[in-house]
Design a protein around this nucleic acid. Structure first.
Lengths: 224, 224
DNA sequence: CTGCATCCGCCTCGATACTG
DNA sequence: CAGTATCGAGGCGGATGCAG
């Protein structure tokens, strides 16, 4: 039960002592998307032993990174969620996500995929400057997952669930959505393939995707 | 020799497959400060097996994160340094550093300490808005380590070595420097203790430290 | 002396089985 | 559903050996 520590008076080493072990940041990723119950975490983290998950959750709770609460909607259940301290891990997670995305392209398609993870990529790649003077809200249905993306006054909002007043609704499949966001496919090609069904303003969707797709760092620095 | 992978089509998981193993990000931290030779890395990472360091370095080289070059100054030697790809890890490292710094305060003083690490904290905590309209360059001698910090037009520059035209030169010890940057001691108290010797403009040093010290997140959000 | 490679004991991890 | 218990395998840490 004793922990392995770097024993260094350094914030990075101290942080890694807490969230640097295997699987821990992936647990945080899952909870950044939404609070989840024990079983849901296990399902999204295949390969992780159930004992290890239990121990990680216990440790993170002791450290005040996550907490366990009783959720009332949509049904009564015990779920784990990030505390404010844990929520502050969003910045590091997004930074690592942005860095890691350039290695993703040549990955075998056998790997596990969840459309929620693409939402993190969008957050990581978001550039407020590109979104200036735009105000769009789209609802998405990707592999059964429903969420909306709202861009307004240079701010980005992504939430699970249906939107209130979307200007467009898009239905597509996970791989197409990922390829689009990662810049591996063009919107035009995916629409032609028929994997993209738009209800409402198509122009709004086009505009939004111009903002959300990953750009290479050269392009980004030009704009900044 | 086979690697353990998360097998997920997710940028975060992919990134962690590369730099998520034990010690790897600390190697990156060392190389973010300056290129180093094998032995120097080993000295700054006590507890790490020499075999493990060799294997990590090899892996990182194969992945294009670091490279080995022949350094000519100050003496001819083979050193490891970050590639452009590796340099892009600065953002994640700084983000994790900022997060981890709030856990640092109650750490036992027996832990290993290097003044270079404080430089990363300064970079992580730097807020361009606070530095607006300021132009200061100070040279520091901390536990024998010489470096300078330049603030100019909202930009921060930290480099090892002597400054060209510093408005002030400060000599102090590592713990005082760390306590100051981490906001655990006030500049006044450290000067009174005699652990702080300023040559040149004392006001410049005071101004600069107001910028460089860690602020709690509440204060930062007020300014932003 | 630096820059690794080899060997070995141990701790962590991953899979399965089991319990409240 | 939410964990706990168990155990084999593999990554890690320390000591040592060796070549340039």
């Amino acid at each position: 039960m004793k922990k392995r520590s770097y024993q260094q008076y350094c914030p990075l080493a101290t942080g890694l002592d807490i969230i640097g072990q295997r699987w821990t940041l992936l647990i945080v990723r899952e909870l950044l998307i939404a609070p989840k119950r024990y079983k849901a975490l296990l399902e999204n983290l295949p390969g992780m032993g159930t004992n290890l998950l239990a121990e990680r959750l216990k440790t993170l709770m002791n450290l005040g990174v996550i907490e366990q609460i009783v959720q009332l909607t949509p049904c009564v259940s015990k779920v784990y969620q990030l505390t404010d301290l844990g929520q502050e891990l969003e910045k590091p997670v997004l930074a690592l996500t942005q860095w890691g995305s350039q290695f993703l392209k040549k990955k075998p398609p056998k790997f596990l995929f969840r459309p929620e993870w693409v939402l993190i990529v969008i957050k990581a790649a978001f550039n407020p400057q590109k979104a200036a003077y735009l105000s769009i809200c789209c609802e998405w249905h990707v592999d059964g997952l429903i969420f909306y993306i709202r861009v307004d006054e240079g701010r980005l909002e992504i939430k699970l669930g249906a939107a209130e007043n979307p200007v467009a609704t898009v239905k597509t499949d996970g791989p197409s959505f990922a390829a689009l966001v990662l810049g591996e496919s063009r919107l035009k090609d995916i629409i032609v393939k028929g994997a993209f069904k738009i209800t409402g303003s198509g122009l709004a969707v086009v505009r939004m995707m111009q903002i959300l797709c990953i750009q290479d760092s050269h392009t980004q620095s030009e704009i900044a």
